[in-house]
């Protein structure tokens, strides 16, 4: 993985601190050209990996990337699935079964329901695989060397103890997509324990890691201890804690941590992208 990964929150009106800023972002990135222009700024700053949710808009961005193979020949996407709000909003309206019925393609689910019989393990694995395939469809022909499970899903399965499904995701990403599975989580130490117990060694884990303890479940100390003593490939996200920490201070902290392979960040202006990249590079080059 590259040292710096570029995220997509800013494109989809995700601002962890302000609903009004969220709305301003929605206005600013209404057109795909605005997204592409900003991605180009990131590329000019030397970032070639875009980590993004499987939002409907990303499908349109993928069309543009596919149409310009020369321009994007070194460009990689790390998909993160599922786009949770799509499902969460649908669940409030349709219930769990109704939501799966709506999003599992084809007739499989309808057939299963009509049968009126108990579901068997194969059915759940099929549902999971079909949902992954549906989410991955938009990336056809684009390099996706790492594919992530979003934190809502990772952490839901983690709390429920559905270890076989976390493992099932891992195995399917490797066999079907020839890619590395990654997990986004807000509960990094607990997830690592669980994945290791399931026989997954050296997993890719993307977690909130920042100076102010924001979304670091159990506390910063356990996170630092885990980074120091355990074997896994860490990606630090939310390093600015949504803007609560001044950028330089935030990056200094994360750069100083052991075992953080990559830093994920999102920024919407050219200047902020360039500043963030050069700040990370500066701290890295000063490291012994």
């Amino acid at each position: 993985m590259e040292r710096i990964l570029y995220g997509d929150n800013q494109f989809f009106a995700v601002n962890h601190l302000s609903d009004s800023k969220s709305q301003a972002l929605a206005v600013r990135f209404k057109d795909n050209e605005a997204i592409i222009r900003t991605l180009d700024h990131a590329r000019e700053a030397g970032i070639n990996t875009f980590m993004c949710t499987t939002h409907d808009r990303i499908a349109q961005i993928c069309d543009i990337i596919r149409a310009n193979p020369e321009k994007y020949k070194d460009f990689k996407i790390y998909p993160c699935m599922p786009y949770a709000h799509k499902y969460a909003n649908a669940m409030t309206d349709l219930g769990i079964a109704g939501t799966i019925k709506q999003y599992v393609p084809g007739n499989l689910f309808g057939t299963m329901f009509k049968g009126g019989k108990a579901f068997i393990s194969k059915d759940y694995v099929s549902i999971m695989e079909l949902l992954i395939d549906a989410e991955m469809k938009m990336f056809k022909g684009i390099k996706t060397p790492v594919i992530f499970l979003q934190n809502v899903m990772t952490d839901l399965l983690l709390g429920l103890g559905m270890v076989d499904l976390l493992k099932g995701y891992h195995d399917y990403i490797i066999t079907k997509y020839n890619a590395e599975p990654g997990y986004i989580t807000m509960n990094m130490p607990k997830l690592l324990d669980t994945l290791e117990a399931a026989g997954i060694s050296n997993p890719i884990i993307c977690a909130s890691i920042n100076k102010v303890n924001f979304r670091m479940s159990g506390g910063k100390e356990i996170y630092e201890e885990t980074l120091r003593t355990r074997k896994f490939r860490a990606i630090a996200m939310q390093v600015l804690a949504g803007g609560a920490i001044p950028p330089k201070e935030a990056i200094e902290y994360v750069s100083g941590l052991p075992n953080v392979e990559s830093i994920l960040f999102g920024a919407s202006s050219k200047a902020n992208i360039q500043n963030t990249v050069s700040t990370i590079n500066n701290f890295d080059s000063n490291k012994v």
Binding site: V152, D155, K190, V212, S217, G218, A241, G242, G243
Partner: peptide
């Protein structure tokens, strides 16, 4: 003020 200044730490985070 932001929720980052005001939210308490939890042992497990979901949603």
């Amino acid at each position: 003020k932001y929720v980052t200044d005001l939210a308490g730490q939890v042992d497990f985070y979901l949603r």
